[in-house]
Structure formats: structure tokens, C-alpha cells
Nucleic acid binder design. Structure first.
Lengths: 336, 336
DNA sequence: CGATCCCGTGTGAACGCTCACAAAGTCCGG
DNA sequence: CCGGACTTTGTGAGCGTTCACACGGGATCG
């Protein structure tokens, strides 16, 4: 697995018969180096299996080429996509990426993460902040290093933020239901301390208010399909004509509760979800839902972070969500 | 966001009235430093907001404290869990973690990743290798740096490997079905170039052979619920009494195909999945499946990598999978 | 044909830290 | 009270790079 010790620039220089500085120039493809010399150096690099030492480089340039990502332990769907897109975008922007997971509300751990990132010399940090607890990390960091927050959150001050437009997404769901003729509707929300959950609640109510429709009081869930199932059961006593679940998993649980009770979807009740989670297209019935493009989010987040690093402004941005109509929604029976 | 320039050890030393070396000792809590001096240094650190520079440290110690993780773009479920567990375990072992995503089979990209990791000076790498394409990365890397492969893969040589026991898991599924009295059974596999898919196929056939049962020829899927749905349709013509899907999403698609056709699960056909994917407990009916504890996998992988770094042996390890019996399986009609 | 400029290259210092070693200071027993 | 052992602290070098600058030589120009 290893030989003696890794060769350095001087070793390459010696073999190529040039100075270490020339080697450096070749490696950073500086213009003024004779093609022939370049060849010779590259050959030496090849022969020695030389790899540059980024620590040494970072030490003198004060640029680590590292970006930090803080994700959350309690991050349900799609961090895979977001994270992956983030990483890919980062790499093509010439950065490496280091990751830390922030468990919910632990300030000590948050400080530790911030500290670790600063010590590593990250040039910027993306914080995926679903809840206020994690958003604190962003706060802690933003005094030390450029930070971009991915969160449906109205940042208190000058912290740059990006997210999928949760309000807009919820509005889409509401308008879809409204368009079908539903007026007896209910929202099953996520935990209210989640920014996404709160924004969806807002969008939902705003859209209904605009149409003059008064929904039933929201039911608060916890994102889990189990809870969705339980809530579905509770709803059975007095069924609305449509339900908007704050995520697909809760919708899934409700679908099961309804199926077991012999309630047909969408004939007896329409169901809309949120996320377009994996498999939602093949729930029974296929779930109408609001899709968030998390890959696009990741890529956009990275772009925004790079701008912030470059000293750009901290404009909040929202990426649009889109409605994916499928078989779980239809006009209410009364309208047929 | 920034002040002038970051203070260094010498700045701290000057303020505390000691030498830079003493500062270093305090920071690495070396035993022999007088408590009073320590206090003074720590106060100075605090006052200046000093953070050490890990690049500089890495340069001299040749220990970066960095671990690399290569994950795969086409890594379906649970990287969140695995990655999260990996990161947490790494941190408590005193490492940071950098991530790279390998889009499927591109050797050039793999080489690039390997190169980047080596240049960063990672002390070890975890490669999550679902397919031979990605496993090549592991090969390439293992000559340069300690590598641990997470994969249901029989490594060609001395590469350390860890995974959930896919064969055992598939055997569990088969034996569960056998125990219920099923003999007319079929396996819907994953893409055959995936190690996991191949191992599940093997375990399935081995278990059935042991019981003297000849299953129908395997149907090859692609992990997606859409494909599962299509396969479910095809199966309708001549229904077996039980189906073992290589993952929950394909099972989900089949569940829908059956439901739409009025075929009842488990009365008319039993379905077993694999993964215990999010929501599987609330599919309709709740899906009997084989659970992999991916968090445990992540933690174990890190432990193993640390051993490899320390020069330990490269024993392959398998973590057990467990059967989660739910409502989608029952005795075949003939046996009732 | 000498002064000027640019190109290709080399020289030395510095980045912020740890390591090896040396120098005080402290304590003890004889 | 002195020598040795231990404790606490300081000094200088060096890790592998890049940066600032200096230098020689050919081309260009007046």
C-alpha cells in the first residue's frame, strides 16, 4: 500500500533537471514555461507518481478549496439528491466538500461543528436547516465564514438563503383541489417547528383564503407514515372531500387507513401529498403530489454559495415547486 | 464576516507571554505544562478568537485527520442513514469526512476522485460500491491509501469489505415463504450487475434448493417501482402463490398492479420485499420485508476502516439482515 | 549597435505548525 | 548543600508549497 515517502516537488525537480519553482509552474499551468520543459516535468511527475500536497498549498495560499456542508440528522427524504447535486456542483466549481451532521437541538455539537469547519479552513458552508435548531448552526458560522442556508426560512438578517418555494407548492396543491371543486378540505401538516411545515401551512391557508374557502383546522403530524395512518383513521368518522398531506409518507399512511376502511380514493376522498417521494407514482392509487427538485436545489445552492464567497449579495431565492397530478385526486362526489 | 488576518500561535504566545511551543502544548494537552500557564494561554486563545490551522498541522504531522467517502450516484435507498452513521462514527473517532459521488461507470471520473482524495491526504477511504464499476475505484485507490469497501462483493484480493448479509437476507425471505407453504414462487431481481442483486438471487436459490423447491425463472427488474408495476402486470396472466421482490420499491409497484387487477394480497398472492424502505410498513397491505440496518452498517464500516488504517487484517464482515413479517404474506390458498 | 523589454527560469523567504533538543527551574536524598 | 532526576519552558529547524523578485538571453526598437 505504501512505498517510502511521498515524493515532493523538489524530487520531481531534481529528476527533471529544473527548479522546484518550474515544477510548480507546470502544475498550475502557468503560461510562461517552454513546452519542452513542461514535457520533461510531466514525465518526471508520472515516473515518480507525484501527487501534490494540498495541505502545503492551502497553508500558503490561504485557500483550502474546501466547502463544508451541514446536514441534519432528522432530515427526511432526499438529502441524497440534494447532497449529491451539491457535491457534484462543488467539484465542478473546483471545491471539495466535507460533511457534518447536526443532530437536532444540541448547541454544544453545533459549536463543535462550526469550530471544526473553521479549523479546516473551509471557504464557505452550506447549512441545510429544516428547523430552528439547525439554523442556529448557520448563525454561529456566519460570523466566521460565508454561509448559505438551504431552508424555507426568512433569515433574521443578512444570511443568504435558498429553498424550494414551499408556500407556492402548498398553494399549488390548494388550487388544484379548489379547481376540482373541493371546499371541505383539511391539511395534515408536519411538525410546526419545521420551516417547511410552517411554510406549507401558510401557503395552504393563503390560497384557500383567496378563494374564500375555510378549511378545517389543521391536523399536526410528524412526517411519518405511521402517524399518517393514525390520522387517516381519525378522519374516517367525518370525512372531508379532500386531504392535503404535508408529505407523501403521511399521505401513504392515510391511503392505507382509507383502503382498510373501504373508503375509496379518489371517489370518496381526494389525497394530495408533497415531495414526490420515491414510489409515490406507484402508491395505490398513484399519488397526486407537489414535486421539489432537490437536485436543482443542490446545484443552485452551490451556485449561490459561490456568489456569496465572491462577496455577492445575499438575495433570498426560491425555486419553484411543481404539481404532479395523478390518480389520487378527482372532483368531489357532490360535484358529479 | 472577517477581521484582518487570522491570529496564529505566535500571536497567542505573545499575548500570553509564553513561547509558541507552549501554546502548542496547551492545545494538544500535553501533560507537562503548569495549570496556571495553561489558563493564561487559554485566556489568550479566547481573547484572540484563535483557531488552529489544520493545514499547517497536517503538513508537518502527515496526518490530515480526513477520511474520504466515495458514494454512488445510483445508490438507491438509505445513503442518508449510512452516510450519517459513517460521519458520526468518524467524528467520534476524531476524523473529518469528505465525500465524493461517483456517477455510475465512468473510470475517468473514478480516477479523478481517487486523485483528489490522495492529494487531500486522506488517511483512509470508504467506498460504497454497489456495482463492479464503482468497485474499480476501490481497486485503484487501495494501492495508495487504506480502503474499506461497503459492498456485497467477494473482493478479489486483500481489500477489506463489509456489508449486510444479502444472501442471508434473501434466504430469510425464502424460508419465510417456504414456512408458509409456498412452492410456486418467483423472484423479481435487481439489475444483475449489482452485487446486492446477485447476492439476493443466490441466497434465494440456495434456500429453495435446500428445501427441494424449484422456483420459476427469475424476472430481472431495475429497482424502480415503475418496473415493479410493469412486472406485476406481466405476472397476472399466470400468478404464482408468492413473489419475492429484490427491493421494496419494486414490491410496491407490484402491489399496485395487483390491486388494480383486483388480485388480493396476501389472499391471492404473497409479496415479500427487501430493505424495509421508508413507508413499507404502511403500504397496502403492509409489506413483509427484509430489513437492513444501514446505520449499523455505516458505523461498522467506519470501525473496520479504522482497523485497516491501524494495519489490522482485512477480514470480510457481514452484518445480519432481519425479516420483518407484516401483512403482505400468508399461507397460499391451496394450504388453507 | 546599445538600450529596452519580455520570456523562461532560478533563488530565497514565508505560510503556521510540530518535532527534537536544549535550557532553566524544582525537588529530593545523601 | 550538592548532584541527579524530573518538570516546565524555550529555540531552531523543517514539513511542501507558493510568492516576490532577480537573472540571463533573445528579440525589438530607435
Amino acid at each position: 500500500m505504501e512505498g517510502g515517502k511521498r515524493p515532493g516537488m523538489t524530487d520531481v525537480a531534481r529528476l527533471a533537471g529544473v527548479s522546484h519553482q518550474t515544477v510548480s509552474r507546470v502544475l498550475n499551468d502557468h503560461p510562461s514555461v517552454r513546452p519542452e520543459t513542461r514535457e520533461r516535468v510531466l514525465a518526471a511527475v508520472e515516473q515518480l507518481g507525484y501527487r501534490r500536497n494540498l495541505s502545503a498549498r492551502a497553508l500558503v495560499t490561504r485557500r483550502s478549496g474546501l466547502l463544508g456542508i451541514v446536514s441534519s440528522g432528522s432530515w427526511r427524504s432526499g438529502p441524497a439528491g440534494t447532497l449529491g447535486a451539491l457535491e457534484q456542483a462543488a467539484r465542478s466549481a473546483g471545491y471539495f466538500v466535507t460533511v457534518a451532521i447536526a443532530p437536532e437541538p444540541d448547541p454544544a455539537r453545533h459549536a463543535e461543528i462550526a469550530n471544526a469547519f473553521v479549523e479546516q479552513g473551509v471557504e464557505g458552508v452550506v447549512v441545510i436547516a429544516p428547523t430552528p435548531g439547525v439554523a442556529e448552526v448557520a448563525q454561529a458560522l456566519s460570523t466566521q465564514v460565508p454561509v448559505l442556508v438551504v431552508s424555507a426560512w426568512d433569515p433574521p438578517d443578512d444570511v443568504a438563503t435558498i429553498s424550494v418555494d414551499q408556500r407556492g407548492g402548498a398553494r399549488l396543491a390548494a388550487e388544484h383541489l379548489l379547481g376540482l371543486g373541493h371546499t371541505d378540505v383539511v391539511h395534515v401538516s408536519g411538525p410546526t417547528d419545521w420551516f417547511d411545515a410552517a411554510a406549507r401551512v401558510e401557503g395552504w391557508h393563503a390560497a384557500l383564503a383567496d378563494a374564500g374557502v375555510r378549511p378545517r383546522p389543521d391536523v399536526v403530524g410528524d412526517w411519518s407514515s405511521d402517524r399518517g395512518y393514525a390520522i387517516g383513521h381519525e378522519l374516517l368518522d367525518d370525512l372531508p372531500t379532500a386531504v392535503f398531506a404535508a408529505n407523501d409518507l403521511m399521505a401513504l399512511g392515510m391511503l392505507r387507513a382509507f383502503a382498510e376502511a373501504g373508503v375509496r380514493v379518489p371517489d370518496d376522498v381526494s389525497v394530495v401529498g408533497f415531495d414526490d417521494f420515491e414510489g409515490a407514482a406507484n402508491y395505490y392509487p398513484p399519488l397526486t403530489t407537489v414535486r421539489q427538485d432537490l437536485r436543482a436545489l443542490g446545484a443552485a445552492a452551490l451556485g449561490a454559495l459561490v456568489e456569496v464567497i465572491a462577496g455577492g449579495p445575499a438575495l433570498p431565492r426560491r425555486l419553484p415547486a411543481t404539481l404532479v397530478p395523478r390518480a389520487s385526486t378527482a372532483a368531489p362526489r357532490s360535484a358529479r
